[in-house]
Design a protein around this nucleic acid. Structure first.
Lengths: 124, 124
DNA sequence: ATCTTTAATGCAATTTTGTCGCATTTGTTA
DNA sequence: TAACAAATGCGACAAAATTGCATTAAAGAT
């Protein structure tokens, strides 16, 4: 199942690169100045996550947000970092701070989803 | 707006105490052997969260899970702890490990939602 | 340049999760 | 026991995300 390049994929990536923060499907759709179906955007985003191009954050509103992964991001943050959701400007960004944790014996961790909520530097 | 005691509230609390882990509305409904409306359970859960009896966790499936808060739990975990979702048995539990983090200057944190996903001790 | 294969898309319907308005019921207190 | 307001049931609704299916269009082969 080889991937193909399509205008939609390029547009989605472009939007996320420009924004420099995590975005939800509907926010992405609003920024793309093309008429692309909702379901298609979801499929593109899911494929990017599968391929490691994006990573998915689930905020405490239950919505999925998507942000560039390391390999496609010029910043040096890794994927196991904290995310910060600002209550004022309602944006989600990747913090440079890594999540450090220990788990009790016999637990193994495959994935993490850590979101801090509060007021960001631009809104304080 | 003083709270009243109702059978529904008692039943919900009882289920959560017995389970000893975080549960979603539908899981709670299944465990309650009474015919209680979905919306009512949601309202009870939300009120409990307002009152600090429960705390709410949003897992990476986007669903809300509810667990007893400190004051009502005999365990000594505090509310700013990691949660662990097991991929095998699909349960969510509160880990004793506290979340420690630092944020960049001028950020203030009001709330956190941290869920680790993997295999729990019972399933490994 | 054209054909072929199959990934990608559009559309509509569906599922899931959670909330809300409103009439009715029921705790609680006087 | 009466009265007030919180709690409930019911139905409708909203938002987020997925899925089936027919159609379109990349990408490699001819």
């Amino acid at each position: 199942m080889k991937r193909r390049n399509t205008p939609t994929k390029e547009a989605v990536l472009e939007v996320l690169k420009t924004a420099g923060k995590a975005m939800s499907q509907d926010a992405i759709e609003q920024e793309i100045h093309m008429d692309i179906n909702r379901a298609t955007i979801y499929r593109v985003l899911n494929r990017f996550c599968e391929d490691g191009v994006l990573h998915r954050i689930v905020a405490d509103d239950g919505k999925q947000y998507f942000a560039l992964s390391d390999k496609n991001d010029n910043n040096k943050v890794s994927d196991n970092h904290f995310h910060f959701k600002c209550l004022a400007c309602d944006t989600i960004e990747c913090l440079p701070n890594k999540v450090s944790f220990t788990v009790p014996n016999a637990y193994s961790v495959a994935h993490m989803n850590c979101v801090l909520t509060g007021i960001c530097k631009d809104c304080s």
